[in-house]
Simulated assay, not measured.
Amino acid sequence: MAGTYTPVALPFTVAGEKEDLLTLLADQRALFKVTVRGITEEQARTRTTVSDLTLGGLVKHLALGERNTLEELRERDETAEFDMSEAEHAYDLTDGETLAGWLDEYDRAAAELDEYVAEVGGLDELIPQPTAPWQPEREWWTIRKMMLHKLRETAHHSGHADIIREALDGQSTMGALFTMPDA
């Protein structure tokens, strides 16, 4: 598919809307990873803006989001509730956690989610969403909507990461694309 910023090759064959969604999401994930490329563990934990967000925290949050989306698709739990205690450190690298470890988890979770979506029959299947303080009534989303939400969430946090990285050492994601190693 043309129109990506990074070289994207899906590890499976899909066509049409699935190919578009999975390719654009893979591209956005790759752009996010360009933003965090080459940082140290210390830099991954460094706040560079008035926000509490850090690059490492964003990697962890996106990895957890990939994993949670996959669980929602697989389990289809009509009684699921978001556990707010799990969110307490969702944006923090805690003791014993590493940037490399969360980048690996991000890659694993994204690959598993993409494979699931590639193999599922269609994108119109309705999946129950967990209730949460920001979504107190049960909603049913199509797989399409879930994947579009994942694309939006990844792009949203990629913007955060780009600002944090620029404040850290002046690197911008788009500038780094010119020095990106071959994938």
Rank of each mutant, 00 (worst) to 15 (best):
E66R: 10
R152L: 14
T179L: 11
T69M: 09
V14I: 13
M146H: 14
A87K: 15
E153A: 11
T13H: 01
L148E: 15
L168D: 09
L93S: 05
T69W: 06
T6G: 03
F178R: 15
S51I: 06
A132T: 12
R138I: 10
V117Y: 02
G96Y: 02
D162W: 07
E88Q: 14
K150S: 13
A90P: 01
M147R: 08
E75P: 03
L53V: 01
I127E: 08
L21I: 11
Y5E: 09
H61L: 06
P136G: 06
A111S: 13
S85G: 00
L123D: 10
Q129V: 00
G175A: 07
M147K: 09
T46L: 09
A176C: 04
L64Q: 03
R47M: 10
L21T: 11
G121C: 11
P130Y: 03
A87Y: 13
E41T: 05
K145Q: 15
A26S: 15
K150F: 12
G38W: 03
L22G: 02
I39R: 02
D92I: 11
L53T: 00
T13C: 01
R144S: 07
A80E: 09
A176Q: 14
G101F: 13
M180W: 13
Y116V: 00
I39C: 07
E88L: 10
Y106Q: 13
L55H: 05
G56D: 02
L168G: 07
A80H: 03
D114A: 15
I127C: 04
E66G: 09
M147L: 15
V117C: 04
R76G: 02
A110P: 05
W140Y: 15
Q171L: 14
G159L: 08
L58F: 02
L123K: 11
D162Y: 06
A109R: 05
F12L: 07
R165T: 05
L55R: 00
E71K: 15
A100I: 03
Y106E: 06
L31V: 14
